[in-house]
Amino acid sequence: MSALDLNKPVAELIDVTRTYRMGGNEVRALDGFSHSFGRGEYWAIMGSSGSGKSTLLNVLACIDRPSSGIYKVDGIDTGTLDDDALSELRSRKLGFIFQAYNLIPQLDVLENIMTPLFYQDDPPADGEQRARRLAERVGLAKRLDHRPMQLSGGQQQRVAIARALVNQPALILADEATGNLDSATALEILALFDELHAEGATIIMVTHEPDVGERAQHVMRLKDGRIENIVRGQRGAPTALRAQASGGVAS
């Protein structure tokens, strides 16, 4: 990975607007939003409900398209992609962590972790090894054959995190990832995010809890589909990224 790559943003939005029609009124959920999320950055996006943070996350996740403007993931302009190509992009470049864990009930832990790989056009041969390693990493190596129903909320969210990492994504998106957890478990999950950030992962997390938002590297506040303010560097750049920036090689 070269220094040049590092400078290229993972997610770049240029003048993105997303409008909905609601009962005859046009609602601008995103209104000329422009921002670049850099590689290795850990962002918290905050704002009251209706501020556009969910819409922003959906656009970032490539499950919603901007009404106008440009959104690039890893340099790829998503506006030019058809539904299949967009799906392929999701399965290769993005990792998702949801508030309600959203595991698939009829699959066991290992299968749940591997799900994004199933949908890739050319799945990696070492998918299962990867999934096992990640399960071990999130502390669920002994529960690979369990169904989601047999796991606690915290364990389910760990499976979801493993699933979000299995495709080695360019960007990890988290939507109120700790919203359904008790505070002790929430802290464990946030600690896991810190680790990932320290290893160089790019994370964008939507939350409405200030103390969760404080754990991120940067905080963006939204209001009426626009950026209200940005607080940068509240926790500093991760060590791994600093090492890379100074010419080190991360493997």
């Binding site: 299949d84 799900t115 949908y119």
Partner: peptide
């Protein structure tokens, strides 16, 4: 519906 949404978000194409 929700399962379908999850699968689509995780990269499932329509044909899947």
């Amino acid at each position: 519906t929700r399962e379908i949404g999850i699968r689509r978000a995780l990269g499932a194409k329509r044909r899947h």
